[in-house]
């Protein structure tokens, strides 16, 4: 939709990239070891131990293992919600998502809206990775999409006070990701799966890949991206739909 995103001026891009490296820096200085809200009692201690120990081990921002295309799982499961009831979604699905738009707002320098075509014009990343569901299953698929950092740069970069990226979906899900995950090169908004469009059951038209987390944080049916300084006003204020219902926020374990 937003034609400007396709022809990002060089000056603006550099400003955006500068803001992103600011994110990288603050990402190291600020709290990457604790969730937005620490649960009370021993459960909070356990959460912090899990998150802090893993984040420490991942501090080099290394990539997750990427598999060969021959490793791709046939019949990758379509788990959880596979068809949002949302009326707008159904209408967009009936026209192959040509009307679909992803709004990118909040603490970005240039709030924008991106059509599927806009996303596909941005430099893509393709990765073949293992999806691990907290419930127990795992399967390998190839995902193609826009790195989240590239998208945020296309929206002018993020402001200094940015701490989390909140994603809303058409199946009513929401989740917040801290900058440690946002800047990871394999955190992408995938529009392609195994060389084709993402099928409906796997999150059409665009789903999130945060490879170092359990499946449930790899949101499907994306609706909007919002950069915030705090998750207080998101849902019940604990940084995600499941954490609002007493699941741990950090899902690397």
């Amino acid at each position: 939709m937003n034609k400007k995103t396709g022809t990002l001026s060089r000056r603006k891009f550099i400003a955006g990239a500068g803001a992103m490296s600011g994110v990288l820096l603050t990402g190291c200085e600020t709290d990457i070891y604790t969730p937005p809200e620490i649960r009370s009692g021993l459960m909070g201690v356990s959460d912090v131990l899990t998150m802090a120990s893993q984040r420490l081990l991942m501090s080099g921002q290394g990539l997750v293992k990427e598999y060969e295309t021959s490793d791709i799982t046939k019949d990758f499961p379509a788990w959880g919600r596979t068809n949002p009831e949302d009326e707008n979604y159904q209408q967009m699905a009936s026209t192959s998502f040509t009307d679909w738009n992803l709004s990118v707002g909040g603490l970005v320098n240039r709030p924008s809206s991106f059509s599927l075509q806009d996303l596909k014009r941005l430099p893509p990343r393709t990765q073949t990775t293992m999806h691990i569901c907290e419930q127990g299953w795992s399967a390998i698929a190839q995902w193609t999409g826009v790195p989240l950092t590239t998208l945020l740069e296309a929206a002018g970069g993020v402001k200094q006070e940015a701490r989390y990226v909140v994603i809303d979906t058409y199946d009513g899900w929401y989740d917040a990701y801290d900058m440690f995950d946002v800047v990871h090169p394999q955190t992408i908004l995938a529009y392609g799966m195994n060389g084709k469009d993402v099928p409906q059951g796997n999150g059409a038209p665009v789903r999130l890949r945060v490879e170092r987390h359990c499946g449930y944080r790899n949101l499907k049916f994306l609706k909007s991206v919002q950069v915030v300084a705090s998750v207080e006003d998101i849902g019940l204020g604990k940084g995600g739909l499941l954490s609002d219902y007493n699941w741990h926020w950090y899902a690397g374990a």
């Binding site: 081990l57 290394g62 997750v64 293992m130 690397g252």
Partner: peptide
């Protein structure tokens, strides 16, 4: 070895078990 973070921290550990499901 069943934890998603270990696909980044140490995929070798997962392979050592013969895969993520083998570890489980």
């Amino acid at each position: 070895a069943q934890m998603p973070a270990f696909t980044a921290i140490s995929p070798e550990l997962i392979d050592l078990f013969g895969g993520r499901q083998s570890a489980r």
